[in-house]
């Protein structure tokens, strides 16, 4: 049995400094959910496929089921909990609600963050850019038509502000 000494992981999550001592094999998604009680980030396939666990780490989306928590030490993380401000939904969240971009909602936290990353890069993405931008996020009930509509509406709304 190797020496599995716990490791202190310090991060900023949604602007707030957080830390916990965890076993090295703790995945970033479990660190967020079980140790920091931020359960908005979902565990979907747990095999680097579905993207339900997507968070933004140091300005880039990553699959938090495919990162050991100590690798994120010192990092800046945005989870779905960080999107709304002062009780008001983020325009991307509003657009997904408005356009029925979700049914069961399981994949939604990941899709919202992938959309945020996509719209930072392309303020008015083409359909091709949307397709490529959310290729790492799987939805198994809504279908993608309404998700596309949501992303287009969010883009238009965010451009206005």
């Amino acid at each position: 049995m190797p020496d599995v000494k716990k490791v202190l992981v310090r991060v900023r999550v949604n602007g707030e400094a957080r830390e916990a001592e965890v076993e090295p094999r703790t995945l970033l998604v479990e660190f967020l959910r079980e140790h920091l009680n931020l359960t908005g980030t979902h565990v979907g396939c747990d095999t680097t496929y579905c993207g339900a666990c997507t968070v933004i780490l140091n300005g880039r989306t990553v699959k938090s089921c495919t990162l050991f928590a100590p690798m994120a030490d010192g990092g800046e993380i945005t989870t779905v909990e960080g999107l709304s401000k002062d009780g008001k939904l983020h325009p991307i969240q509003e657009a997904f609600a408005e356009c029925h971009g979700l049914q069961c909602g399981y994949c939604t936290p990941g899709l919202l963050l992938s959309t945020l990353q996509l719209l930072k890069k392309y303020s008015r993405p083409t359909d091709g850019q949307i397709r490529k931008g959310i290729a790492g996020n799987t939805c198994r009930c809504t279908g993608y038509q309404n998700i596309f509509k949501s992303i287009r509406m969010a883009a238009a709304e965010m451009e206005k502000r």
């Binding site: 880039r60 989306t61 990553v62 495919t66 990162l67 490529k132 290729a135 790492g136």
Partner: peptide
């Protein structure tokens, strides 16, 4: 390669 998230990491 793979998708956005995997390419980022």
């Amino acid at each position: 390669i793979a998708d956005v998230q995997v390419r980022n990491q």
